[in-house]
Design a protein around this nucleic acid. Sequence first.
DNA 1: CTGGGGACGGGGCCC
DNA 2: GGGGCCCCGTCCCCA
Length: 251
Amino acid sequence: MPRSFLVKKHTNYIKKPNYSELESPTVFITPHFYKGLPLPVIPQPEILSPAAYSPITVWTTSSLPLSPLPSDLSPIFSYPSSLSDTSSKDHSGSESPRSDEDELGICKLTGEAEKFQCGLLKHKQLHCDAQSRKSFSCKYCEKEYVSLGALKMHIRTHTLPCVCKICGKAFSRPWLLQGHIRTHTGEKPFSCPHCNRAFADRSNLRAHLQTHSDVKKYQCKNCSKTFSRMSLLHKHEESGCCAAHLSCKVD
DNA sequence: CTGGGGACGGGGCCC
DNA sequence: GGGGCCCCGTCCCCA
């Protein structure tokens, strides 16, 4: 199974299309320790499939391929007739008293029954969010986002404007590059308070802290064994614990 | 095989 | 709106 972030890896080369008109300029973080170090020659961007990014266009709110809003979202939900218009109105107490039957609504998409006001409205909002708010589509992949800012952030994952001057590896965000630079410098600013072991990555410290805990974060539902990482839990489950458990449950 | 570390990606939140 | 940061997560590698 391909790793999406491995696809964007640039270990020995850079495939960076010319998005100059689209994205923020390439960021080179040049800390003091670079001084005196020979800087690698950054390969020129290779041309990928022309269809991938040609012609270059600038994303704007008007030029973005906005998906038309669903013309009719209301059929998704089934409200009691007396309440059918409350979704767009302030329902903070102006409603007349309802019977218990009126307090249930059925989502026509999922068939789920939800308590009115809280449950069903939230339920409806989930669908509305999914259908109407994700209006900004990435031209390089199928992803959609609810805001232009989120889309721009995502596009950086395609363009990788932050390039390490030491190895030429490219990253989508400056702080990712900074974290990568620590692999060159050996800087480890995150220390474990228990064993004083240091880490370059806060997430790795967090995972390490789990090893000091008797009860770890990820617990097998079947045998209650706990693990410091979800991946370890998944490995454990795939190794047969769950299968054994299920076979026991079947009888 | 298992557990842990290293490296890194993406979305969301906050300023 | 953009950048920084946080959190969660994944995969690879190694002891």
